[in-house]
Design a protein around this nucleic acid. Structure first.
Lengths: 165, 165
DNA sequence: TTTAGCGATGTAATGTTGTAACGTGCATCG
DNA sequence: CGATGCACGTTACAACATTACATCGCTAAA
């Protein structure tokens, strides 16, 4: 997903474990399992919202999601309800909030806990992510060094993606 | 500013250059110099907005600033105008936008270019920052490795500060 | 079986953040 | 003088987010 189309000299150390990158039905199943595993219910509404969220390549706003879920259900779903469920998804690691875009993105490997590094293209808006635990751990360490506790890193990079460059 | 009240084993490599951390009038002067140096004007409005911004410990929203500047001038200043000037400040490095707070903070060493790492306390809202070029360069490198260009890192850490912990 | 409680969702209103479009005043320069 | 450019004003609106309270359906205790 994140490998570039060109050779390079990058020396970052990637996390030394395997991901199960899910997509489509497989992802939905993994999400359901993760949510149930967290002691929460997998309701129709949650299922629909997750499904819609997962179809986006770009970070989706709560209002985008509300619109699509409304269509899908043939009945208006208020942004309010969407926010509630997105918050739940974020706390249970089924989705992430992209702070610099005021939007959300499905976690393609729920159940697997990382500090993600998001790359968001300013031109086309698509977002991808990197898992580089060595790097994110350094950020955590720096914050803890400064006396912070319960740290939650927000690491995003805006720029031009390879396609738009 | 960022040194913690406790001993530690942190091994991050800090930027090997000196900062002139400004405050108060000195900071305003430095800001003026930086803006003029960038070929922009230092107007009364810009001066007032910068002054107000600089009094905040916490990231300030454009609306906060609009309110205070309105008071100071005895005349309503629209958020619109504040945004224009904040955008200018951000592009000229006099201020930074804190994405995870939808707010702005004065750069205490304008003219000195860094990718800052912001630490924002979820309890009291205060923000501090770290300059660790070694670390931010790795983030840049990771993004460039993924094919991104013109990268602009957004590195923020939410958590509890030493005082609130 | 009733009913009290609880979690999930609906509804409405409102608050906050951000942008667009266009007008005005003022300085500079030909 | 008139044209240009920049800063700022004014209005309207779009986008993002939260609050308070109502309703529904399930289940567990009386």
């Amino acid at each position: 997903m994140i490998d570039p189309p060109h050779a390079n000299a990058y020396i970052g150390i990637m996390a030394a474990h395997h991901h199960h990158e899910h997509a489509g039905a497989s992802l939905a199943q993994a999400a359901e399992a993760a949510l149930v595993g967290a002691g929460e219910q997998w309701t129709d509404m949650r299922s629909d919202i997750f499904a819609v969220l997962a179809t986006f390549e770009k970070p989706a706003s709560a209002y985008d999601i509300a619109d699509l879920v409304s269509q899908k259900r043939g009945k208006r779903v208020a942004p309010n309800s969407v926010y509630r469920i997105l918050d739940l998804f974020v706390t249970t690691n089924l989705a992430r909030r992209v702070e610099s875009a005021n939007a959300y993105i499905a976690n393609s490997h729920p159940g697997c806990l990382h500090d993600c590094i998001f790359l968001i293209c300013d031109s086309c808006g698509t977002a991808t992510h990197i898992d580089d635990d060595a790097l994110t751990m350094r950020v955590r360490a720096a914050a803890e060094h400064a006396g912070f506790a319960q740290v939650r890193p927000v690491i995003e990079v805006r720029g031009k993606c390879a396609d738009c460059d």
